[in-house]
Write a protein that binds this DNA or RNA. Structure first.
Length: 561
DNA sequence: CACCCTCGCGCC
DNA sequence: AAATGGCGCGAGGGTG
């Protein structure tokens, strides 16, 4: 059973079968709670991210939903039409054969609407939001039935829609964040807080030491070109000012420069200004963008939510009487590749929680070491390079020979990604297990790679462009299937968490649950059993690949792992 | 001033 | 000869 909810200018319309209601926000809340108590329906929204936060503020949590915009985007990509607008008005217009309006600017863009832009849903006169939803939903169901694996798309759409619920819930609940701990850490590393725009004491000292090391001439350590020139004057030519380049140089400016870089980044990306902007009432509330990345990974808007530096994990602490349950999938992507390819030999390797360690034993005779980019590398490191090269298309240094060895041992897995790469090189699309579909290459790409070779240089450029796109599609099948896995995990998990335990953070292959202390053990078990089911849901009951998680109930995020 | 690019580096 | 995927963000530096 599904119930369509449409929002128009603060009022709500509800379509339940042939019944139609108009509700105030308060009435809607009462209605929703009643429905959820009896037999939870599938709630249909034009967009969860636009409507659900209002319900959350009123204390409403939904179990299941269908996000028409997210699903439209996935379906359009599946059908090779990802450039078409995906909002409700556009989807409705396509069904009715009307002129298709562009998507409204995302709410994050602070752009004022121009004179000719209209606010609101952009539907034709006389068509209500719920009516449009009803029409689009029916059309989406027809398109699903036409697909090669309708059941996979249904799982994908349910999981993606549930992810949207989870994302809004996590933003509303917030990640516990101790501003006082964060402030103390900044003060310890940078010196006392200074007004925005000024360099903290420690950075001032380091900048002076850097200039001294360059003979007293002021050098702006924030400007890479200036650093390259400064080394040039010392007779040291470097291609860039990147840390790994600087580390190879024997010069007194290098140590203070590297330390400056490190601390300056902390100050600018996650300094006091960040605390002021993002931490309220002991919570970090980023805006997550479900499906914001072509591969289906989430993106975030502001706050760098998916790039929290590891050293700030000390700031993430459970409330008194609560625990943080931290769970991250161990080497998710190689396991996903194993399952996708149905590589039974590699599946045996996945039985170990440390996949790379066990892969090393399968690839090498024990204890051999070689040099890799000048560094001694043990077998585990080499096994990891081999696997990453397969998934990313790397061929630098020893990678190609390691990849060749991996191909010899596990031909099914390696040929799976190589077929995806070849498809990309031909300009074809590839799909994740559940049907996330890679975009078409650009017209510029087709022009570059399509023509017959005019000269050697043009042919080289074309070849490089083709290979680049091949690396993208090679990685897409793995990354997008990992996104499938994570979405299904989130969908499963948010249904099963006991009591007041709730998701507070998600990052690609890792979840954090804030849980009352006495429920933490149960939360750990729920997460572990959910993860076991996810592999079967995606790849079938007989899938032999294990997807183990590291799960830990801790007081502080930094204590996990 | 707004806008756009590159660089460099944090996360997966 | 060398060639690894996906992001977000801030700073510098240029353009119009």
């Amino acid at each position: 059973m599904h119930i369509i909810v449409g929002e128009e200018e603060g009022a709500f319309a509800v379509l339940e079968g042939s019944n139609r209601y108009a509700f105030t926000p308060d009435e809607l809340v009462e209605y929703v709670l009643e429905q959820e108590r009896e037999q939870p329906p599938r709630w249909v929204f034009a967009s969860v991210s636009e409507t659900y936060p209002t319900l959350l503020r009123a204390g409403v949590r939904l179990r299941r939903c269908h996000d028409l915009t997210l699903v439209e985007g996935l379906l359009l990509a599946y059908e090779g039409r990802e450039r078409e607008p995906r909002g409700l008005a556009a989807a409705y217009a396509r069904v009715r054969g009307l002129e298709v309006p562009p998507d409204p600017a995302p709410p994050g863009a602070e752009r004022q609407p121009t004179l000719f832009e209209t606010r609101g849903p952009g539907l034709p006169e006389g068509v209500s939001v719920v009516e449009a939803c009803r029409v689009v939903l029916a059309e989406q169901e027809r398109r699903i039935r036409r697909a090669e694996h309708p059941e996979r798309l249904r799982l994908l759409f349910a999981a993606e829609s549930a992810s949207a619920l989870a994302a809004a819930e996590m933003s509303a609940d917030g990640l516990p964040w101790r501003a006082d701990v964060h402030d103390a850490l900044l003060t310890e590393l940078l010196g006392p807080r200074v007004p925005t725009g000024q360099r903290p004491r420690r950075l001032v000292e380091l900048a002076a030491r850097i200039s001294d090391a360059f003979g007293g001439k002021p050098v702006n350590p924030d400007s890479p070109p200036t650093i390259v020139r400064a080394f040039g004057r010392e007779g040291i030519e470097i291609p860039s000012a990147r840390a790994h380049v600087l580390r190879e140089i024997d010069h007194p400016a290098v140590p203070p420069l590297l330390e400056y870089r490190d601390l300056a980044r902390l100050h600018s990306a996650n300094g006091w200004a960040w605390i002021d902007e993002w931490i309220r009432d002991g919570r970090f509330r980023p805006v997550y963008v479900v499906g914001g990345v072509v591969s289906g990974r989430w993106a975030s808007q502001g706050g760098g939510a998916l790039q929290i530096p590891a050293r700030l994990r000390v700031c993430v602490r459970a409330d008194p009487g609560w625990k943080l349950v931290v769970a991250d999938a161990a080497q998710l992507e190689p396991r996903v590749l194993t399952a996708l390819a149905g590589d039974r030999k590699l599946a045996e390797v996945s039985g170990s929680t440390d996949l790379y360690d066990s892969l090393a034993r399968a690839m090498f005779s024990p204890g051999t070491r070689t040099l890799y980019r000048g560094k001694e590398m043990d077998d585990r490191g080499r096994a990891k390079i081999a696997m990453l090269s397969a998934m990313y298309g790397g061929t630098a240094g020893e990678a190609s020979s390691l990849l060749a060895l991996l191909r010899q041992r596990f031909p099914e897995a390696v040929s799976y990604v190589e077929r995806a790469a070849q498809a990309g090189e031909r300009g074809e699309r590839v799909r994740s297990r559940l049907g996330r579909t890679s975009p078409a290459p650009s017209d510029a790409w087709r022009a570059l790679t399509g023509g017959a070779s005019e000269d050697v240089a043009a042919e080289g450029k074309a070849r490089r462009a083709a290979r680049d796109w091949g690396r993208f599609t090679r990685n897409f099948v793995v990354q997008a299937t990992a996104a499938d896995w994570a979405a299904v995990l989130l969908a499963t998990l948010r249904q099963r968490l006991p009591g007041d335990a709730h998701l507070v953070f998600f990052q690609h292959d890792e979840v954090l649950v804030h849980s009352p202390e006495d429920l933490a053990d149960e939360v750990c078990r729920v997460i572990e059993s959910a993860a076991e089911e996810v592999g079967k849901l995606l790849f079938g009951e007989s899938c032999p690949v294990r997807f183990p998680l590291h799960v830990a109930a801790v007081d502080c995020y930094a204590d996990a792992k």
